[in-house]
Design a protein around this nucleic acid. Structure first.
Lengths: 206, 206
DNA sequence: CTTTAATTGATATTTTATTATCTATTTACA
DNA sequence: TGTAAATAGATAATAAAATATCAATTAAAG
């Protein structure tokens, strides 16, 4: 199924290609070349070709890739076909923003439940998602076979939440806090560290 | 001042070291080694040492780095001392979440004004930041000498906003939309593409 | 029917980032 | 005072990613 030996940088570029393909499809294009995609995304054609090759797409010389086929291949590789169910913990501003985010549903992610410790939030619905107390997480995750968790709590609770997620059998954690999480080897953590991005930006403009 | 020839991966790790240093300082530690930092962050000591070296820190054999000095060096390199003023455009859920984010102020970023097109939002305050109409951006940015812009609008308006920011003289754009932005060479765009992160997560758990 | 231009696919090269090795230094302890 | 252990700092090696080169293929134009 999903190619595990694809490099992280390449994998991160696939959604860009997907968006590009959808846009071109809407423009009525039937075929598309690496050069086309590259010029739209400011990437060199060779890189696009290598990435598409790794994703399993095949094209025809002089013509390029068939748009419909490319869409299918990318969709498959990105898991857009069968969405992954996820829990989100921390219904602060960021948690709410992610829960409201429409694009996730079109892109392989279904946030099925939210968790918080605040009695003001528990039992409420945010954008159609019910908020549960934290102590229900393990049980619900196991019953619903949840494999992905999103952490949008304050930094100080992040490790505790991660521990709970690990106990619940979650295998992928999307960590929006700036703390390093300690988890077993079979759990993959992706850190969305805004501070890291900020460092680069500040460095580049000064 | 800020070292332009530091690699992006290394630069992205600096905030992690900074957090670690602050934590150790609070624990009362006076000196800290690469091994210590590495074991806390699950990084190999050599990598930590090289990064700190690039940041300009110097340590003593057998002892490590002085915590206070390390804090100063990292703070300087990260620009935490003199915060960068920024404008944010798009006061939807994500825009509000970022505006509310307390940590930015402690980490070199000051969001000084917000912009939106919705009459319901213009004139209001969100977390102490006034929302202005979009057509005020260029003028305000020039008067306030704003060099950083954050885009949290819907995807379809992103390029338009980027064009306005470029016109306003903004040199660094933090793009939270999934679209590729076309800007002149002297403007640096950092893409915070949630879809890219999602690809990696979905790929790794399946 | 032949030539030309564009493009893929495969392989090779270069660049960048990470990791290892080795030496010098410093502290702690016998 | 001497020795062992830990560590920084410098240099070297390795691994990973990006980019270039080249041959094969195909469609279109002459």
């Amino acid at each position: 199924m999903s190619n595990q030996n694809m490099s992280v940088p390449a994998l991160r570029r696939l959604p860009l290609y997907y968006r590009c393909v959808i846009a071109l499809k809407e423009e009525g294009k039937k075929f598309i070349s690496c050069t086309d995609i590259g010029s739209r995304l400011e990437l060199v054609p060779i890189q696009v070709r290598k990435d598409l090759q790794a994703a399993g797409a095949t094209g025809r010389p002089k013509v390029g890739y068939e748009v419909d086929e490319l869409e299918t291949v990318l969709k498959e590789m990105l898991g857009y076909g069968k969405p992954t169910d996820a829990f989100i913990v921390g219904m602060g501003n960021l948690g709410q923003a992610l829960t409201a985010h429409k694009e996730f549903e079109r892109c392989g992610l279904e946030i099925v439940a939210a968790f918080d410790t605040s009695p003001l939030k528990i039992g409420r619905d945010y954008f159609g998602k019910r908020v549960f107390p934290l102590n229900k997480l393990v049980n619900l995750a196991q019953r619903m076979n949840i494999k992905m968790g999103i952490i949008t709590t304050p930094a100080k609770s992040a490790q505790d939440i991660a521990d709970i997620m690990v106990e619940a059998g979650i295998k992928g954690i999307w960590n929006f806090t700036p703390v390093h999480l300690n988890v077993p080897d079979d759990v993959y953590v992706h850190n969305e560290n805004f501070m890291s991005s900020l460092s680069v930006l500040i460095n580049r403009i000064s």
